[in-house]
Amino acid sequence: MIKATHKRLERINEMIAPHSEVLVLGCETCTGICLVGGEKEVARMAANLRLLNRKNGGKKTFTEGVVRRQCEMEFLDGAASLINDADAVVSLACGVGMQAIAEHFPNMPVYPGNNTAFLGLSPELGLFSERCVACGDCLIDRTGGLCPIARCAKHLFNGPCGGSVAGKCEVSPDVPCIWQMIVDRMMRLGQLSKLEDIKGIRNWKTNDAVGPRAYIREDLRSTPPKLDSVVMKPVAPKGGAA
């Protein structure tokens, strides 16, 4: 899921300087789950903003709200009156939720209360780590289910660089070398020979080479959608440079 962290309070305070009625709006999906967007975080953020505002002699009011998923227009509609009653929203969702507000409420300023960090998981309490970069053309079938694009500091496709030592990445002794993990896993899976094939130069169009991306599920639509992004087609299989 999407993982995020809080922005620093002073930064948020600067953003909302021109506004007097501020809604702190949380999201119960990704940022809720990574403990920066739920009801309690909203309460904490609002309380802190109130305290800061009072200390600075401000007269702002802060309201609190949460929606199930800030990235869904229908859920935002449910919070419409809360949003419209404010004159700015500090969103504790990810960048997607924040933009959903910006799009859905054209006249409402929305400010990020969070930094959207990455797509990852929480292997244990209090630890969040990256697993995927949403590159649009998953290749982990050839790498034992582990992603070298997201997890190799050099996004290498064809094996570890010369800096892999004792299972650690050259960038830090805390970071495991994903290629070591891939080799180990392929060995266990009896698929090591797969790594002998050269993964050819890749098509980055599915990633960020084309601007904002979109895809359409034709089976779910009868009318052509209003597009705001470039429609992605599945990547045609292509070998390495011959």
Partner: peptide
């Protein structure tokens, strides 16, 4: 630490 970060 929340209070401190906010200069409170």
């Amino acid at each position: 630490s929340l209070l401190k970060d906010a200069g409170l």
